[in-house]
């Protein structure tokens, strides 16, 4: 098993799909000659040439729309949106066009498109380049959504996304690009969309994390006096109800760990489903550990507080277990806001 950085794993996944399928093409800003601003298309231009690996102008609506058109007519484009915020200027093509083609063609047209975007805080890119924005994607039927939490699942999810017959968005927490781990490559490394990954096993709670928060949740659970199942959700649309339900039915407690504002965060869907379907099995109210309802700030300490840390996850879960109640978030505890 090769050890790779997450950006290398992404390049490798795309390269493997390009080798096996000549319809796979890559589009994005500075993805070809420069091999991607985050080096997520290393070696692709060299191996596959300029017909299939293309630098685009700064025209997200144009090239994402072109990718929708190419996907609908036989290609399998992989589009890079450098920072997920840039999807904002192209969202129509993805959400209102591409996501609806299959439906609006009576099932005759397929859009096997992969849209990759870097997400998240932690690197000091400031308010307009640090959000996670799953919420822009998750409420749109017709789209699938996966979120990588490290090199291995970045590889596996990417390959599954490129093979999928639907438009799939793959979000990549930017601060993990340099993270290294062993990656299972080849067919065995492919991870089915919609399947979560058990990371840590335990009995007191089910901690569901996604992308950048998997690390904090895992660290917290490993260091704590309590024991918990830590589940890396990996896919949000669809999400793995089976694994989450099986775990919560056993532990009786659900915790989500989210790097996004409290309002409208992905955890709300998980909590709502579990509360409705497993009401009788719960020993405590579900706890959502999130960022506050503010734009992502710049200053280093502020940005670090914005993202749920392992220490914070540890404290919140401990208090939930001790009191049987949902503890207030840090910004209420410290009386900064109500």
């Amino acid at each position: 098993m090769p050890r790779m950085r997450m950006n290398q794993a992404i390049s490798a996944a795309i390269a493997d799909e390009m080798r096996s399928d000549p319809d796979v093409i890559v589009l994005g800003e500075d993805v070809a000659v420069a091999e991607g601003p985050f080096k997520t298309s290393e070696g692709l231009l060299e191996e596959f040439g300029p017909l299939r690996v293309r630098d685009t102008p700064i025209s997200e609506m144009g090239f994402l729309g072109a990718a929708v058109g190419a996907a609908a007519t036989g290609l399998r484009p992989v589009v890079e949106i450098m920072f997920v915020e840039f999807l904002g200027v192209a969202l129509d093509q993805l959400s209102t066009e591409g996501a609806k083609f299959h439906y609006l063609s009576g099932g005759l047209v397929k859009v096997p498109l992969t849209v990759r975007a870097s997400v998240g805080a932690g690197l000091g890119f400031g308010t307009q380049h640090s959000q996670t924005l799953e919420s822009w994607v998750v409420g749109t039927p017709g789209l699938k959504l996966a979120v990588a939490s490290g090199p291995a699942n970045a590889y596996g999810l990417m390959r599954a996304a490129i093979r999928d017959e639907n438009p799939v968005v793959v979000l990549e927490p930017r601060r993990l690009y340099a993270r290294r781990e062993e990656v299972t490559v080849g067919e065995e490394g492919i991870i089915a969309l919609g399947r979560a990954r058990p990371v840590v096993a335990g009995d007191d709670a089910t901690v569901v994390a996604l992308g950048s928060t998997v690390g904090a949740a895992t660290e917290a659970a490993t260091a704590a006096s309590w024991s918990a199942d830590v589940i890396d959700l990996q896919s949000l649309q669809p999400w793995d109800r089976e694994m989450v339900y099986e775990s919560v039915a056993r532990t009786g407690r659900l915790v989500t760990v989210e790097e996004n504002p409290l309002s409208g965060g992905w955890g709300a869907d998980i909590v709502a489903a579990v509360a409705a379907d497993l009401f009788g099995e719960l020993k405590a109210p579900p706890l959502r550990i999130t960022s506050p309802d503010v734009p992502v700030p710049f200053g280093k300490e502020l940005e670090e507080r914005y993202m749920p840390s392992s220490a914070y996850v540890g404290e919140q879960v401990t208090e939930l277990l001790d009191t049987g109640r949902v503890p207030p978030p840090w910004w209420q505890r410290e009386e900064i806001t109500t």
Binding site: I58, E85, F86, G88, V89, G124, F125, G126, T127, Q128, H129, P297, F298, G299, L302
Partner: peptide
């Protein structure tokens, strides 16, 4: 006040609207 960083400057008194990190 330091919450913006290099890409986010502003001073209405001199007509500097909040600066933009999104191209265009």
């Amino acid at each position: 006040g330091g919450i913006g960083g290099s890409m986010h400057l502003c001073d209405p008194e001199i007509g500097l609207m909040p600066t933009f990190a999104i191209v265009g």
